[in-house]
C-alpha cells in the first residue's frame, strides 16, 4: 500500500485510475484527479500512462527485433538472433497454418501484435505497488502500469484490425461482393434484412470481442493482484506467487489468442466465398 492511510476501496480505485491529461471543465489543462474528473474531460483527454508505457514497450520490441534484423545473417545465429528467429518462425508458422491468401502485411502484423501484447501484459507481473509508488514519489499522482488494462488500447488495436478486415474484404471481393457476403448469407435472398442484421452483428462482434477479451482478462488479473496486495503480509506472497505463475500463462495465451484471431479474421476477409 502506498504510505497514506487509504481505505481498501480508495486503494483499489487509485490503482485503477489512469493518469489522464486533458481540459478540466473550468477550462484549465491538467491531470485529472480521480476517474470522475477524467470523465468530465470528455473524449479529448489522453491517458499518459497508457500511452507512455505502451510506446516505451513498443520501442523495446522495435529495438530488439530491429537489432536482430540488421545483424541477421545466414550463418550461425547468436543468442538474440536465435530467439528472434524462433519467435518469427513461430508466428510465420501460425500465419501459414490459418492464412491462405498472399499478403505481406499479415505476418508482420501478427508478430507486432503478439510481441507487443506480451510485453504489455508482462507489466502485470511487476508487483502492483512498485511503479505507482515510485511515480507518486516523483510527484505523479496516478499510474496504471499495464496498458492492456486500458480499454483504449485494446480497442485501438481491435479497431486497427477491424479497418484491415474491412479494407481487404472490399479490396478482394469488391464492394458488391462484400455486400453480397453480408446480405445473402446464411439465409436465402428474400430474407436480406435479416441476413444483413445477423452478418453485421457478427462483423462488429469481431473487434469488440477482440478488444474486450484482452481487456477483460488483463483487468481481472490486475484486479486480483490488487486484491492480494490488500491481504495481510503473510498471505500476500503465498497467494501472489501462484497467481503470478498462473498469470504468465494468461499473459502469453491472451497475446496468442489476439494474434491468431487477427490472422483468422484477415484470412476470412481474403476468402472469395464460403
Amino acid at each position: 500500500m502506498s504510505g497514506e492511510n487509504l481505505t481498501s476501496s480508495e486503494y483499489i480505485k487509485h490503482h485503477l485510475t489512469n493518469l489522464t491529461y486533458g481540459q478540466h471543465p473550468d477550462g484549465s489543462l491538467g491531470i485529472a484527479h480521480g476517474s470522475e474528473a477524467a470523465k468530465e474531460m470528455g473524449f479529448w483527454a489522453l491517458n499518459l500512462d497508457t500511452m507512455g508505457v505502451s510506446i516505451i514497450l513498443g520501442f523495446v520490441f522495435i529495438y530488439f527485433f530491429k537489432k536482430a534484423a540488421s545483424t541477421a545473417t545466414a550463418g550461425v545465429p547468436g543468442g538474440l538472433q536465435n530467439f528472434v528467429e524462433w519467435v518469427i518462425e513461430f508466428v510465420d508458422e501460425s500465419v501459414k497454418d490459418s492464412f491462405n491468401g498472399k499478403n505481406p502485411l499479415v505476418a508482420p502484423l501478427a508478430l507486432t501484435i503478439f510481441i507487443w501484447i506480451i510485453l504489455m501484459n508482462t507489466m502485470d507481473l511487476v508487483p502492483v505497488d512498485y511503479l505507482p509508488h515510485l511515480a507518486s514519489m516523483m510527484g505523479v499522482p496516478y499510474l496504471k502500469v499495464v496498458p492492456t488494462t486500458d480499454p483504449n488500447l485494446t480497442f485501438a488495436m481491435a479497431l486497427g484490425v477491424f479497418c484491415l478486415i474491412l479494407f481487404y474484404s472490399i479490396k478482394i471481393k469488391g464492394p458488391g461482393g462484400f455486400f453480397a457476403e453480408l446480405a445473402f448469407h446464411p439465409f436465402p435472398k428474400y430474407l436480406m434484412p435479416f441476413n444483413l442484421f445477423l452478418e453485421l452483428v457478427s462483423l462488429i462482434a469481431k473487434p469488440i470481442s477482440l478488444a474486450l477479451r484482452l481487456f477483460g482478462n488483463m483487468y481481472a488479473g490486475e484486479m486480483i493482484f490488487i486484491l492480494i496486495a490488500l491481504l495481510p503480509w503473510g498471505a500476500q506472497w503465498v497467494l501472489s506467487l501462484p497467481w503470478a505463475i498462473f498469470h504468465i500463462l494468461i499473459v502469453v495465451l491472451q497475446a496468442f489468442i489476439f494474434m491468431t484471431l487477427t490472422i483468422v479474421y484477415l484470412s476470412m476477409a481474403h476468402e472469395e466465398s464460403h
Binding site: N18, T20, F43, A45, L46, N47, N152, L159, G160
Partner: peptide, 11 residues
C-alpha cells in the same frame, strides 16, 4: 476506464 483520445493515439 474512459474511452478518450488515447484510442486515437494508440491506433
Amino acid at each position: 476506464m474512459n474511452i478518450n483520445a488515447t484510442l486515437i493515439g494508440q491506433t
